[in-house]
């Protein structure tokens, strides 16, 4: 059975159907607020550096998870990096088959520790490879809202 297959014949069991009708609104936190404001307003990527552990966190954090120092050194990083790993998703969230697969990639930004999960665009599935240099394509400034979706996708770096 596919993991996305829905439970069948629910009507045959004596069951009470219902939902937990809550939803969530998340704030981005101290580090997230600054990161996404910078992306929205200036189209720039920011990270925080831990001088002791020689790590550059992108997305940024206010503390180093390894030595627990408060991180106060903010640095700009370029919106480009390499594909660390990727997958081709042939089903959507409701289990429907997609004609063109979604290309999802973990992109490691240049010089950074960690990475950004996003879609790849302007590339055919067969051309994607681990290690491929990619760059972020942002929405036009007036459409940006301060969200991960302000990045449309990453595409192969144009030289």
């Amino acid at each position: 059975m596919l993991p996305l297959e829905k439970p069948q014949q629910v009507h045959r069991a004596l069951a009470w159907q219902g939902e937990i009708p809550t939803y969530n609104i998340y704030t981005f936190g101290i580090a997230g607020e600054r990161f996404f404001r910078e992306l929205k307003e200036h189209g720039r990527f920011l990270g925080t550096r831990c001088p002791a552990c020689h790590l550059l966190y992108v997305p940024p954090r206010i503390y180093c998870e390894r030595c627990f120092a408060s991180l106060e050194e903010w640095v700009e990083v370029p919106g480009r990096g390499t594909v660390f790993t990727f997958t081709l998703a042939y089903y959507d969230l409701d289990g429907r088959r997609l004609e063109h697969p979604d290309i999802l990639a973990l992109v490691r930004l240049e010089g950074a520790h960690g990475g950004v999960l996003h879609r790849l665009g302007e590339v055919e599935p067969g051309q994607v490879a681990i290690g491929m240099p990619v760059e972020a394509v942002l929405k036009p400034p007036q459409e940006r809202r301060g969200s991960i979706l302000d990045i449309l996708y990453f595409r192969p770096t144009r030289r």
Partner: peptide, 22 residues
């Protein structure tokens, strides 16, 4: 602060529906 956009936020609807067996 959230509805008026002074801080950034994102909304998520889990859309979690259940059939609880008796």
């Amino acid at each position: 602060d959230i509805p008026e956009g002074r801080v950034l936020s994102v909304r998520w609807d889990p859309n979690a529906r259940y059939a609880w067996d008796a």
